Simulated scan of single mutants.
Amino acid sequence: MSLPVVRPFRRDDRDQLTDLVNAHVAVVVPGLSVSVNTVLSHLERQPGEFITDPWVAERVTLVAERSHSVVAAAHLLRYRADAEVGEACRDSGEIDWFVCRPPASFWPDAEQAGDRPMAACLAQFARAEGLADVGNLHVEAAAHGQGLENRLLAEAADRLRPAGTDRLLAYEQADDTAAVDLLRAAGFRS
């Protein structure tokens, strides 16, 4: 089965994201579910959390999509770096929540499908001054060996350089040797 594509949440993902959240909620409290509005409101400011919520500088929700289905999602928080922020949270990030489609007989690789979005979460936190991450570099197998990967990476580097980016971060599943080899051939180190 193909690997999921990780991308930012879009409003039209709301129903599938809510179904995924409810699959996890029902395991903890059978019969309980949350509404689409509850899930969407959690993606925004949390005024009831009056201590740490004002410290949040950035909220990002990522979804992993496979065959037009949301199979995993994560909500990330990045805290400001100024003195108003508590020392334990200052200039840090957290995965507020992460959900992944549970294993099923019709989807035997469900657990592995969570690896890619988790790697994307970690890459979000790895961003620092001068560093950008390659979210999804994919070239069809029929086009391998034509140098497209290098041309795409060079174009990305040319567009990112004026913004101060001088390093790229890429991630693949460790057992996907073909993808890892392509990145190494393009100059990436592990």
Rank of each mutant, 00 (worst) to 15 (best):
16 Q>I: 03
90 R>L: 05
53 D>V: 07
15 D>P: 00
74 A>Y: 04
69 S>M: 08
25 V>Q: 05
29 V>Y: 10
87 E>H: 13
50 F>P: 04
61 T>V: 13
53 D>W: 03
95 I>A: 09
80 R>Q: 06
68 H>P: 00
76 L>M: 06
71 V>W: 01
91 D>Q: 05
80 R>W: 04
57 A>G: 10
50 F>H: 13
41 S>F: 03
7 R>V: 08
74 A>E: 03
19 D>M: 09
72 A>Q: 02
25 V>T: 10
62 L>E: 02
7 R>D: 03
66 R>Q: 15
28 V>G: 00
77 L>Q: 07
70 V>I: 15
41 S>K: 14
68 H>K: 14
10 R>L: 13
60 V>M: 06
30 P>M: 03
39 V>L: 09
87 E>W: 12
64 A>G: 13
77 L>H: 13
53 D>L: 05
25 V>S: 01
85 V>W: 01
35 S>A: 10
44 E>L: 14
50 F>M: 06
18 T>F: 02
15 D>L: 12
63 V>M: 07
72 A>D: 02
80 R>H: 10
32 L>A: 12
21 V>I: 15
73 A>D: 04
36 V>S: 11
93 G>P: 00
67 S>K: 08
77 L>T: 01
90 R>E: 09
12 D>N: 12
24 H>R: 13
14 R>L: 09
26 A>D: 13
36 V>A: 09
60 V>I: 15
58 E>Q: 13
92 S>N: 12
73 A>S: 14
73 A>I: 04
69 S>A: 14
21 V>A: 11
71 V>M: 04
17 L>S: 01
62 L>T: 02
25 V>A: 07
10 R>S: 13
61 T>G: 06
16 Q>R: 07
23 A>I: 03
89 C>F: 14
48 G>L: 12
80 R>L: 06
53 D>I: 09
14 R>M: 08
42 H>M: 14
31 G>K: 03
60 V>E: 08
62 L>N: 04
24 H>E: 06
15 D>H: 15
88 A>M: 11
50 F>C: 08
7 R>F: 05
75 H>L: 06
70 V>T: 06
41 S>Y: 10
21 V>D: 05
24 H>L: 06
42 H>C: 14
73 A>K: 03
8 P>E: 11
49 E>Q: 14
68 H>Y: 05
30 P>H: 01
20 L>I: 02
13 D>L: 02
40 L>W: 02
29 V>E: 13
38 T>F: 09
89 C>W: 13
24 H>G: 11
85 V>S: 01
32 L>K: 09
60 V>H: 04
19 D>W: 10
58 E>Y: 01
78 R>Y: 00
51 I>F: 11
54 P>H: 03
54 P>F: 07
40 L>M: 12
66 R>W: 11
39 V>W: 06
39 V>N: 04
86 G>R: 14
72 A>Y: 01
24 H>V: 06
94 E>N: 08
32 L>Y: 06
73 A>V: 02
79 Y>T: 00
45 R>D: 14
18 T>K: 05
82 D>Q: 03
84 E>R: 14
